[in-house]
Write a protein that binds this DNA or RNA. Structure first.
Length: 482
RNA sequence: GCGAGAGUAGUGUAGUGGUUAUCACUGGAGCUUCCCAAGCUCUAAACCCGGGUUCGAAUCCCGGCUCUCGCACCA
């Protein structure tokens, strides 16, 4: 088994994620988060949300189902709908538009495309046949109401924010810059969804739209000014602080600010160092709405995978929605009217979760596996283990457990099997600390705390555990082993 | 979507026309001289779905679904 296969095997066996609808054979492109995966994902989302709140973000939650007009305005309807041409002989599929481009022909319908392909004896690039079928292909899932209105499942959550821009700005008392964010699902009818959590038809995204005045610096102070590997599209890759990259004119200041925020989030979930980089899109790679885009990529077993896209959308979306809706979406500031620009960091929650699993997977010399998860994002913070299930050890463990779970619900207790088996079980799901109640505990109210990565142990007082203060998103037990 | 391969307990697997369907790990109950998956006993759990061939199909054929790899796709 390859490393990734081993991780997927562990993730299925221990309950991080499962194939969706598996009793009916499964459905390609859809996965279930299993019990531990849900906890991990919640922690990732919590880190995303707290980082944004820290910068004054406001949040929105808009519908998945979106009317056609919105995607006409956003450009997704045109750019997502293609006429596909299928060679009758070899079955290969192409964009009809690109096959007909050299003849200067632009088909309006799939029927017209087929006629043009046949009439001009366009050859299949693979087998040379001139026999074609054609059909409409849309990457957006189309649905209909009973009265026949066309609706789509959104391919990105961003449009919900753009269409509520005036309300959000009013809520923000008219002030720019304004950071808005939405956690939600996106849907894309991928032709061949693959690689588990990497390419799904329904996926979790945490999108941020920062509205700003492009004539000035909107976010002067970087939160961390992280040092990061940068891969620009026109020069050599280099390690730089983001402030230095801005000085070198590699990107705009406000764009770099959100790259810094993105790197902070990755740092908080435990993705750091050489496993993360920022790569600039090539011109031809840019989405229709983007002026510039840098992807935060994570190393997933030797392959760089986009986990966050930080796009400069300019004023494209607001300008388009102003045109199509007739609403005035300009902002007046200092007597000057303008359409705000947008920087959009879009976080791929599922990919971040998968990158976390892959990058935390370790093997000990004896072959036993463990997940070296950051203590703050592990599904369980600490698990209590009575060395024996008798002699009062079990009762003492249960009393500590029931006291602690009132304050930190991310604790567990495990009384089944040998102690080594229980340590191994917790190692596999990435529990960073195990507290073992042994015979000495009965005499002096001390216990041992074991750290997952080193397997080292310290003896601590039960009262010090009970005195821990719990802070949202933090593992309080880290304070006991330092 | 195309081509090739593959789908057997939760996981990984054995099984080339007739088996009570193999083994291991995991899970559960218990014993145990008890701090790193020890040992022992017991136990739960599977042939992807639908057709066909056959006296008889996990096994052969067809279709569907899913997975893997390559191609294409990835706004």
């Amino acid at each position: 088994m390859t490393k990734v296969e081993e991780i997927i095997e562990l993730a299925k066996r221990r309950g991080f994620f499962w194939q969706a609808f598996s009793i009916y054979g499964g459905q390609s492109g859809f996965l279930n988060y299993a019990p531990l995966g849900v906890l991990l994902k919640d922690n990732v989302i919590g880190i995303w949300k707290r980082n944004l709140l820290r910068h004054g973000a406001i949040f929105l939650d808009s519908p998945n189902v979106t009317p056609e007009e919105v995607f006409k305005a956003s450009g997704h309807l045109d750019r997502f709908s293609d006429i596909a041409a299928r060679c009758r002989k070899c079955g290969n599929k192409f964009k009809a538009e690109s096959l007909l481009k050299e003849k200067g022909l632009i088909p309006k319908t799939s029927e017209e495309a087929r006629e043009l392909l046949m009439a001009n004896r366009i050859k299949c690039p693979v087998c040379g046949s001139v026999q074609w079928d054609s059909y409409d292909f849309n990457v957006m899932f189309k649905i209909q109401t009973v009265d026949g209105s066309n609706l789509y499942l959104r391919p990105e959550t961003a449009q919900g924010i753009f269409t509520d821009f005036k309300l959000l700005l009013n809520f923000n008392r008219g002030k720019l810059p304004m950071i808005t964010a939405q956690l939600g699902k996106g849907f894309r009818n991928e032709i061949s969804p693959r690689q588990g959590l990497i390419r799904m038809r329904e996926f979790n995204m945490g999108e941020v739209e920062a509205f700003l005045d492009s004539n000035r610096v909107n976010f002067p102070v970087f939160p961390s000014d992280n040092m990061i590997r940068l891969v620009p599209n026109s020069s050599e890759e280099t390690d730089l602080k983001l402030s230095e990259a801005v000085k070198n004119s590699m990107m705009g200041h406000d764009h770099a600010f959100f790259m810094d925020v993105a790197v902070d989030v990755l740092k908080d979930v435990g993705l750091t160092g050489s496993s993360v980089r920022l790569r600039q899109h090539r011109k031809e790679e840019l989405a229709h709405y983007a002026n510039d885009c840098w992807d935060a990529e994570a190393d997933i077993d030797g392959e760089w995978i986009e986990v966050i896209g930080i796009a400069d959308r300019g004023n494209y979306d607001l300008t388009r929605h102003q045109q199509f809706s007739g609403e005035n979406l300009e902002v007046t500031d200092d007597g000057r009217s303008f359409t705000p620009s947008v920087i959009e960091p879009a976080f791929g929650i599922d990919r971040i979760c998968f990158a976390i699993l892959v990058n935390s997977y370790r093997k000990r010399e004896n072959g036993y596996k463990y997940l070296s998860l950051h203590p703050d994002i592990a599904p369980y913070h600490c698990v209590f283990l009575p060395l024996q299930n008798k002699d009062g050890l079990d009762a003492l463990a249960e009393s500590i457990f029931s006291e602690m779970k009132k304050r930190d619900p991310r604790v567990g207790i495990d009384q089944s099997g040998s102690i080594g088996k229980r340590y191994a079980r917790q190692d596999e799901i990435g529990t960073p600390f195990c507290v073992t109640i042994d015979y000495q505990s009965l005499e002096d109210r001390t216990v041992t705390i074991r750290e997952r990565d080193s397997t080292g142990q310290k003896r601590i007082r039960i009262d010090d555990i009970l005195a821990l203060t719990v802070e949202e998103g933090k593992n309080p037990f880290s304070a006991l082993y330092s």
